[in-house]
Design a binder for these strands. Structure first.
Lengths: 343, 343
DNA sequence: CTGTTAGCGCTTTCAA
DNA sequence: TTGAAAGCGCTAACAG
């Protein structure tokens, strides 16, 4: 009798057919109470509901979705979960998606284009209704995005956007953020302001460079090529860039970094090499990572509404999914200058 | 003729039937090349492959999964994406899952039990093959977990674990971590060591308290109830606890916090109230958040292998999914004492 | 090696 | 208000 016990335990999930049989009715009727949009005899309805409760029925979304042709699932591809910006953006994405009855299938590219391609393939195979994408910094071209466009897949790009596709995009006004910061630095009397930029394939890098240049120009300071250096966003590379800049023996009184992690790398190098911050060289970041608040001196930076970016991106995508005719649009969010003590 | 154009554009996804028809063969044959486990005439196989390429065929996982009765999707419920520990753990989970051909459906509870319940319901409805759960700090009971057990759902709990269920668990040796830290503090000559603990419903809180007590005892220091205070993990609450402790006018020469965010809150209060760290009061944390490295003074803390916890949890769950007979097991990972300048 | 057939669990006409 | 039946895209016997 041990066997029957086992069989009992590995009970297969209960289906509408099971509960229909138990009640001596047809599965269509059961299905109807599930939709609660058709007319069903109130008594029957209640009996069905009770039975469902009793038998612990749970609708099989796979079957339902196969029938409906949509999954109410959004695929998300980001560079990495443990980048503070993305963990906050994902938080916004998930909350907004849940609010609207969507689930999220999440992948990280680990900053590798090939992984990114594979992720997108996997997500499409899972029949996601749409895609939220922030490209990897190694994505030198956007063929994969064009491919999505050709296939009419609803896509919204966020934060790291690129290309001229017919996709909505959500990002911050990088030009303005950089402009604001450099204005501030100049206002504090700095004149030799270096800039550590981000990877050249990302619009955000370009836009921040433009904002930096525009501010210099507006204040009659000529742009010096040798004060501009490209990095890869990482703490370690921030340190490398700072060392390189210092080794060039230029006069520098301030340094504006494309992101906080690089700025933190700069600060570490500056401290090691005996510079006082901000007295000898001021340091400014961008992104307002949690760490910016705790470092010494506190990092002056530009805050981005990362959670809100996630919310907007998800909302936009869902609107597009529900109405494919919904036109593309760019949502450009504002940044905020956060003044601490490093500049 | 505009209409026909539109119709052309909203082409429905191509199925195996489409490519079978195009080739004048049966869809079974097409299906067979998809499985590439059955014997198919090499020529036919190639023709099918070519056609798939040409027609841009993508298998419909929903259909496949409905048939197979499994989804190769793992449901994940965590308290919040933007807690550094979890963003790293998720990173490990996703990479390991992807390596083994699984996708992850992720939800956050925002530390709310009801949301947690809803998340789990949603994930189950999506027919996930198993669940990776870290409970919210407001989860005072574990009825929902018992329910999962009753339904034979493969579950692995990680980090924040609770209850006596037949689930595998992955967590760090909290007793040992706390013990190690307090030993270190005592070794530095501290005798009046306060402890800010975590929510009482979580084993990790209890275990760290036990480690703290055991170390005191081993060194002949008697445990003082008034030096123990319970907090909720947050920076703000760390500040609150610190103030409260200070206001009690006790002699304190060191404070050991259940997590770094609370320790950072303590440091802020201590600085504001004119205490020198570690001279007047030493501060120690737990978790080794990125910020711990950047604060001034650097925070002495206990590092947890957060990424690895994610990897182990995912691996364990997948093993259980593939072999339901696989017995439960506890994976207890080791911590590391990271000495900086705050203690 | 290949085609036919019967579902997986659900929704939704069409009739009654 | 209800039931019968077809079918979403795919897999897997079974038969040839």
């Amino acid at each position: 009798m041990v066997y029957s016990l086992n069989i009992y335990e590995m009970k297969t999930p209960v289906t509408i057919l099971d509960i229909a049989r138990e009640l001596g009715i047809s599965k269509s009727t059961v299905s109807r109470v599930l939709q609660n949009t058709y007319d069903v005899n109130p008594e029957t309805r209640q009996k069905v509901l009770d039975k469902m409760q009793q038998m612990n029925y749970r609708p099989n979304m796979m079957a339902r979705n196969l029938k409906k042709g949509s999954t109410s699932v959004i695929g998300v591809n980001i560079p990495a979960f443990d980048i503070p910006f993305y963990s906050q953006a994902i938080s916004g994405i998930q909350n907004e998606a849940a609010r609207q009855g969507y689930n999220i299938l999440t992948c990280q590219s680990n900053e590798d284009v090939n992984t990114e391609l594979k992720n997108i393939e996997t997500l499409l195979a899972s029949q996601v209704d749409g895609l939220l994408i922030s490209i990897s910094k190694t994505a030198r071209n956007v063929m994969h995005l064009l491919e999505l466009q050709r296939n009419n897949i609803p896509v919204v790009l966020f934060n790291r956007v690129a290309g001229q596709m017919d996709f909505s995009k959500v990002y911050v006004n990088d030009f303005d953020g950089a402009h604001k910061m450099v204005n501030y630095l100049i206002g504090k009397g700095h004149k030799k302001i270096a800039h550590i930029a981000g990877p050249g394939n990302l619009s955000l890098s370009k836009n921040r460079i433009e904002g930096y240049k525009a501010s210099l120009k507006a204040h009659g300071i000529s742009f010096a090529e040798e004060l501009l250096i490209e990095g890869d966003f990482s703490f370690a590379d921030g340190a490398r860039c700072m060392n390189e800049l210092l080794d060039r023996q230029l006069e520098i009184d301030a340094i504006f970094c494309v992101c906080d992690s690089m700025a933190l790398g700069c600060m570490q190098v500056l401290k090691q090499r005996g510079y006082r911050i901000p007295k000898d060289i001021a340091v400014a970041g961008y992104t307002n990572d949690p760490a910016a608040e705790y470092v010494d001196p506190g990092l002056t930076t530009i805050a981005q509404p990362s959670y809100q970016i996630g919310v907007e991106a998800a909302a936009l995508l869902i609107r597009k999914i529900k109405n494919p005719a919904y036109p593309r649009q760019d949502v450009i969010l504002d940044t905020e200058l956060i003044i601490r003590n490093s500049a």
